[in-house]
Amino acid sequence: MIRGWKGYVVYGLGFLLVLEMMLAAAIYWWPSFAENIGKYKVIASPIPMLKQLVDQVDRGGVAGYVVGQHFFKGCATLGTAAAILFASGAVAGEAHRGTMELWLARPVSRLRLLTERYVLGLLAVIVPVFASSYTIPALLTRVDQTMQWSDLTRCSIHMAAFLGVVYSIAFLWSSLGSEPLRISFVMLFASILTFAIYMVETITNYSLYRIVDIEVFMEIVMRNRLDWRFVGPMLAISAVLYLLSLRAFQRRVP
């Protein structure tokens, strides 16, 4: 369970470090990938979804490669795990440890207590997404490539909105429950299942990861604008989930 802003900073930095290491490794591998893209297409051909991904990267060039490696692979998968882990203990962790009464007994309103935890946890998830994304132009200069800051910002906003929904679902459950481990396991299992569905061509459209795949990010890059058909509803869903968490928390008995 993470408690206090220092804890969130530490976990957020940890998440940033992992993202950054994966990103740096991926970008340094770009020349080799570009050179051997034909071979990868052959390797991927038996798995239709994998072939589709490689084709999308091929069409997108370095931008397709970066959004695939960083946003789709790094942020969407690890970010989901981070969002679940950072949110699941927010309230349920206090109940599990028996410290809920102590936490609530101070002269601080429940609105403030919950909002602080919600915002700090959410920042610990989304700030690393933006921070790591903004290191991409510098890393790309090492392989004589470049990407626009504005494209990276738009992709990061899209990614953050998605992770905000995942985080808010886990947070709502935490506000209702008292077993953070169960919340984490069930949600992580559900996210793995959702990713598995994404990888099956016939049912891929039923997966939440369709919202954050290479095709969606390449649309954002190509059109130079956010896709509000996705971002708007995702922000609205997060807001509703937060309000439901608050409602549950206000009624909660220590």
Partner: peptide, 12 residues
């Protein structure tokens, strides 16, 4: 709670 203090019985 600002005008009182409360010490809970359960100690965690």
């Amino acid at each position: 709670r600002q005008r009182t203090t409360y010490a809970p019985g359960e100690l965690h």
